[in-house]
Design a protein around this nucleic acid. Structure first.
Lengths: 201, 201
DNA sequence: TTGCTTGCTGACCGATGGTCAACAACCGTA
DNA sequence: TACGGTTGTTGACCATCGGTCAGCAAGCAA
């Protein structure tokens, strides 16, 4: 008797496996460095099977992305009981910790911002929603344009500074965190939108 | 007599034409939406001719990019006689003016719709060199890590704020400029690297 | 008109994203 | 233990892409 030519998995399990290995592969190689054939080969299955579970390469990629996005979302969700500034500090700390753990993936993600539409949309979406959350804390009604630009720009600042951080590694996480918080304060001040009493810190 | 099957140009002229039309096409369509065959068709020549002038699609794309980059470089070059802060303000104003004129191109560039690694490298290169220029003005010897992170991050802030600007258009160029300068000041302050006497504003 | 330089082309290649009809692993049943 | 059906899985195929090559022909010089 010849051994089975392939192993058969439950659809759910196979799907999970593909997402897991996919995220792993995409963290190491860029989107168009990686062909669907190569992915299939790495996982040990055929290309059509990959297409059986995901209708296109982009959708497969996006699926692996949205996993990471939900982890981000979950881990940076602050305690709603805390005062706004502390919520921000808490989120920020969680965010930096996440980057610290997934340095490679973060770098790839930021590099991919200028290339693959899916990555751009993901990052843009996170920025927009985060900006909205912060602004809502500062201006319950409607934020003035300058403050909005300041907060949104600051989210870019954050990614720039984090990229510098993982590239150079000559700053402690606390130093970076304080630089980020201090810059937000500075940006808001420059926007004539001084935040509520920075209670020490 | 049949009319000529194709028009023959001087190599120099053809090259210029390809660069011009290419920049135009890449400003409208994304990098991989546009195939070399399609570009050739749009220009009215054969694909191999395109490859005769440019060795690969990426190099062709890069060539169209470097045009824009030199314009940026030229227009934001400040007067070296001015004090550092004024140089910065001058560069900034020129930069915002450039964006104002080429809003669509700037948006495409930042969104990365246009590209792949080349766009990232271009933007990254501009940021790195600009950061070096600014830091050199502040710290003739060697910049401390926090200041470097602050300046580099601020260049990201700039792009974020500019993107917000062209998207919403509810800020005057002067307001944006002051927000940018003020935030740089704030970031440097947060980095414990207060710049030389901000001589009024 | 001829000849020659060289700008230019049709036809081709391997690889990629994506599709389809058919095969076979494995569970339920007797 | 044999078998039949479900469905997870595959080899073979397609159009198109980036890129190459041998050869054609536009247009100047004689």
């Amino acid at each position: 008797m010849a051994p089975p030519a392939y192993r058969r998995l439950q659809a759910e399990d196979r799907r999970r496996q593909l997402l897991e290995r996919g995220a792993e592969l995409f963290a190491r190689n860029s989107y168009d460095e990686l062909s669907m054939g190569e992915i299939a080969r790495q996982v040990g299955i055929s290309k059509p099977l990959l297409y059986h579970y995901f209708p296109s390469k982009r959708e497969f990629f996006q699926a692996t992305l949205s996993q990471a996005a939900s982890e981000l979302q979950a881990r940076t969700e602050p305690d709603p009981e805390l005062p706004p500034l502390d919520q921000l500090r808490q989120s920020l700390e969680a965010f930096l910790e996440l980057i610290d753990e997934n340095e490679l993936a973060y770098r790839k993600l930021m590099q991919g911002v200028n290339g693959v539409a899916e990555v751009r949309d993901l990052v843009e979406d996170v920025r927009t929603r985060t900006a909205a959350r912060i602004l809502e804390g500062l201006f319950p009604d409607e934020a003035p344009p300058k403050a909005r630009a300041a907060v949104y720009g600051w989210l870019w600042f954050m990614d720039g500074a984090c990229l510098d951080w993982v590239d150079n590694r000559d700053l402690s996480r606390e130093e970076l965190r304080d630089l980020l918080l201090g810059t937000l304060l500075g940006a808001l001040t420059a926007a004539d939108a001084v935040p509520l009493e920075a209670d020490a810190g």
